[in-house]
Amino acid sequence: FHVTIHVGDITFHIHGVSEEEVKKLEELVRRGADWREIKKTIEEIEK
């Protein structure tokens, strides 16, 4: 999957994300995680 996440003024683009990881990111966004937490999760996914 290709994912784009907008957190305030920050936009993250992630490529090659599995469905499971998409759900993890959706959950973070849904519970209102700040951009640092989302960035950390994205960095883990990209490894």
Rank of each mutant, 00 (worst) to 15 (best):
Lys24Pro: 01
Lys47Ile: 08
Glu37Cys: 02
Val17Glu: 01
Trp35Val: 07
Glu37His: 02
Arg30Pro: 00
Glu19Tyr: 14
Lys39Gln: 15
Glu27Lys: 06
Glu27Gln: 07
Lys23Arg: 13
Ile38Lys: 00
Phe1Thr: 08
Lys23Thr: 09
Lys24Ala: 08
Val22Leu: 14
Ile45Gln: 01
Leu28Glu: 02
His6Phe: 10
His6Asn: 09
Phe12Cys: 03
Lys40Phe: 07
Lys39Phe: 10
Ile42Trp: 04
His15Val: 12
Glu20Ala: 14
Ile5Met: 07
Lys24Thr: 10
Phe1Pro: 06
Ile10His: 15
Gly32Tyr: 02
Glu19Phe: 15
Phe1Gly: 09
Ile14Val: 15
Glu27Thr: 06
His2Pro: 06
His6Ser: 11
His2Cys: 09
Gly16Asn: 15
Thr4Ile: 14
Phe1Ala: 09
Ile45Lys: 01
Glu21Met: 14
Glu44Arg: 04
His13Cys: 11
Lys23Phe: 12
Glu37Asp: 08
Asp34Trp: 01
Thr4Asn: 04
Thr41Glu: 09
Val3Gly: 05
Phe12Lys: 02
Ile45Asn: 02
Gly8Thr: 03
Val7Tyr: 14
Asp9Thr: 10
Ser18Pro: 07
Ile42Asp: 00
Ala33Trp: 01
Ser18Asp: 06
Gly32Thr: 02
Thr41His: 14
Ile45Cys: 07
His13Phe: 12
Phe1Asp: 07
Glu21Ser: 14
Lys24Leu: 15
Glu26Asn: 09
Trp35Pro: 06
Val29Trp: 07
Lys23Asp: 07
Ile38Trp: 04
Gly8Met: 07
Thr11His: 11
Glu19Gln: 11
Trp35Glu: 08
Glu19Thr: 08
Leu25Ile: 11
His2Phe: 08
Arg30Gln: 15
Arg31Pro: 03
Glu26Val: 07
Lys47Trp: 08
Thr11Cys: 08
Trp35Ser: 03
Glu21Gly: 14
Val7Asp: 03
His13Lys: 09
Lys40Ala: 14
Ile10Met: 14
Glu43Asp: 11
Asp34Ala: 05
Ile5Asp: 00
Glu21Asn: 15
Glu27Phe: 04
Ser18Lys: 08
Ile42Glu: 00
Glu26Leu: 11
Lys23Tyr: 12
Lys23Ala: 12
Asp9Cys: 12
Lys40Leu: 09
Ala33Gly: 04
Phe12Pro: 00
Ile42Cys: 03
Gly16Arg: 05
Arg30Leu: 13
Val29Gln: 05
Ser18Ala: 07
Gly32Val: 01
Glu37Ile: 03
Thr4Arg: 03
Thr41Pro: 00
Ile5Asn: 00
Ala33Thr: 05
Thr11Met: 07
Ile38His: 00
Lys40Tyr: 07
Arg36Lys: 11
Arg36Pro: 09
Glu20Ile: 12
Ala33Arg: 02
Ile45Thr: 03
Glu21Val: 15
Lys23Cys: 06
